[in-house]
């Protein structure tokens, strides 16, 4: 565990807490893509299959449970909570995310570390996480202005994977055996997808203006 990875995990945790705060405090999920949340729930479930078989550390196990639990709670809230579900932008959140699931699964069948059930689902979850933000970014562009908490949610989510890239660079130089190419390349693609969001987020912060993404 190095500082970059720990910071990345904390940014990831903060992003989920910001989202939970927004939904709980405003009792609204406008501007949030349910499809992205569903993809993240699938990412965590398929990545943490080893939750009960391999024990790495208390931190590792607790964080896995928190990620699975919080994302499941967000998906539940957006679909079933009587008040929150009314504010879901159903007609804007129309990204066909099943294609992402299918494409990532086919890719995982070809590109994986070992051809085992667990490894294929692990590679699948890595590829899916890279593209899981797409429905959310598309929704933000369609809904035009972005409210602060949603903007911070996407910002912290991007920062988390960016710090993981620093973590992989650090591990590449510090450990003789580096076999995280799947995570590394997928993580680069994932962070690149946030690049334009970061650009507009920075502009809005610099001009102290409302975050507005060009349609």
């Amino acid at each position: 565990m190095n500082i970059f990875r720990f910071a990345g995990d904390m940014f990831h945790l903060i992003s989920i807490l910001v989202l939970l705060l927004k939904i709980y405090a405003t009792k609204s999920c406008s501007g949030i893509s349910l499809k992205t949340q569903e993809l993240y729930a699938l990412v965590f479930v398929t990545r943490y299959l080893d939750l009960f078989t391999d024990f790495i550390s208390v931190y590792n196990t607790v964080m896995k449970l928190v990620f699975i639990g919080s994302t499941a709670a967000i998906v539940w809230c957006m679909q079933w909570h009587p008040v929150v579900k009314r504010s879901y932008d159903r007609e804007l959140d129309t990204f066909r995310h099943y294609f992402l699931v299918g494409a990532c699964f086919v890719l995982a069948l070809f590109l994986h570390e070992n051809f085992t059930f667990q490894e294929i689902f692990w590679a699948f979850s890595i590829y899916l996480e890279a593209v899981a933000i797409l429905p959310q970014l598309v929704l933000l562009q369609r809904s035009g202005n972005v409210d602060n908490l949603t903007g911070q949610y996407v910002f912290f989510l991007g920062a988390y994977r960016a710090f993981y890239i620093l973590n992989w660079i650090y591990r590449y130089f510090m450990e003789q055996r580096f076999s995280r190419w799947i995570s590394c390349i997928s993580g680069l693609v994932q962070t690149a997808l946030y690049a334009d969001f970061f650009y507009y987020y920075f502009l809005s912060w610099k001009n102290n203006a409302k975050l507005h993404l060009p349609a």
Partner: peptide
């Protein structure tokens, strides 16, 4: 034996 890469990252 092929060292099974433990995924110690989240």
């Amino acid at each position: 034996s092929s060292v099974v890469t433990k995924h110690d990252e989240l």
